[in-house]
Nucleic acid binder design. Structure first.
Lengths: 215, 215
DNA sequence: CGCCTTATGTCAACACCATTGACGCAATGT
DNA sequence: ACATTGCGTCAATGGTGTTGACATAAGGCG
């Protein structure tokens, strides 16, 4: 028994980390494992299934050691968001492929249970807790996917995007773009990630909407 | 001269609209146009180039007729978000690949100018206006990418994701997942898009943070 | 022990995909 | 009238996921 789900997922993460997202193909994976590509179908129904397993591994690693019960719900939600975001940011190439998927696997299920629990602790009713958790986690995943996609770009393309905000965007005619002209000095702020700003906005909105703590 | 950039982009949009996102391939496009697939390379450097041309058309269509000056800044931001989200949602395959790009083109520049203008009108200083616009638009784009990617999935996989929330997720042991158990009846809420909930959260947070209107 | 079943990896093949370079043809400008 | 250019075709290359038949090894059991 050479292969196993874990061995394959390990290898997939290593492969994508080293050779980019396009390296994740059944054939290359088989070559890296030293087995026939079709052998993988003994362990995963198809490539989508494999991708979900990889995504769940990322979630599990990111959430390892998370103990939401030891802190206020806002802080716990913030830490959860930062963990997920960091986990995907460290594997940008996988994140770009998998951030938007429902893995239906163990680690994701645990995370969802914890997240909904935090919002119930904030005083939300069951329906509101689910709705707000959904909005919260999708916002985090959306930013993670965006930032990951940006990180996964070839370096020269990424630098061109950054330069756009400090260079090209700053040279537009003032008449056509009065607000860009007024805020010209601040435009480089557009180049970085806005994840933390958005996270604090969402958290403050949830705080304002929460019926009341039940600590 | 049978072909042209416009004819090809038109056909690509029609093709995706009629036969689903997977229909967008050079071969099918060639077949639909009645020409050899390789003829498209006379007009576009590669498929990515073609995709960006299609994306540019989508952005232009989505923002056409937007007049932010005619309404309160919150309503204008909301409409802007809905327009961008709808535009991408109608072309999921294109959105999934292009939502995170900085186009640096005309329509994007206009939108950024308008958005920053709205936050300046809300009373934010230049730096805060840029920071908050960045967080706002990235949240919208992140959700658009997520929803689009979900819609771009093959139908049976999308349905499997939806079923996960109504089926598999509802059958977990209560002891291991107390909050999922408590909110079991509400879990199907996780299956749909959370974009509008998140949008209202962000808008209310911006509203609360705004120093004061300058209408 | 010997047989039968099951698990697991191999192999060849199918049907797609993007992309490229050589080729022919027709129109255009000189 | 001739050369050049633009444009579509053709054939080929090398990549992709997935499938079904085949071989081989491992246990379970009479």
């Amino acid at each position: 028994m050479l292969l196993s789900e874990d061995v394959i997922v390990d290898c997939a993460l290593r492969l994508v980390g080293q050779h980019g997202p396009d390296a994740l193909s059944v054939r290359r994976l088989g070559a890296a494992l030293g087995c026939d590509p079709s052998a993988l179908y003994r362990y995963f129904h198809n490539t989508d299934d494999l991708l979900l397993a990889v995504a769940d591994r990322i979630i599990g690693d990111a959430m390892a050691g998370f103990e939401p019960d030891r802190m206020p719900w806002r802080d716990a939600l913030r830490e959860m968001a930062l963990r997920i975001h960091r986990g995907y940011r460290e594997q940008p190439r996988v994140a770009a492929l998998a951030a938007y998927r429902v893995t239906r696997r163990h680690h994701e299920i645990r995370a969802v249970d914890a997240g909904i629990g935090l919002l119930r602790r904030a005083g939300f009713g069951d329906a509101d807790a689910v709705r707000h958790y959904s909005a919260f986690v999708d916002t985090v995943l959306g930013h993670a996917a965006l930032d990951a996609a940006h990180l996964a770009l070839p370096p020269e393309r990424r630098e061109a995007d950054v330069r756009a905000w400090t260079g090209a965007y700053a040279e537009l005619s003032d008449a056509d773009h009065p607000h860009l002209a007024a805020a010209r000095a601040e435009l480089p702020l557009m180049a970085g990630s806005s994840f933390e700003t958005a996270l604090e906005l969402i958290l403050s909105a949830l705080d304002a909407a929460a019926p009341g703590d039940t600590p």
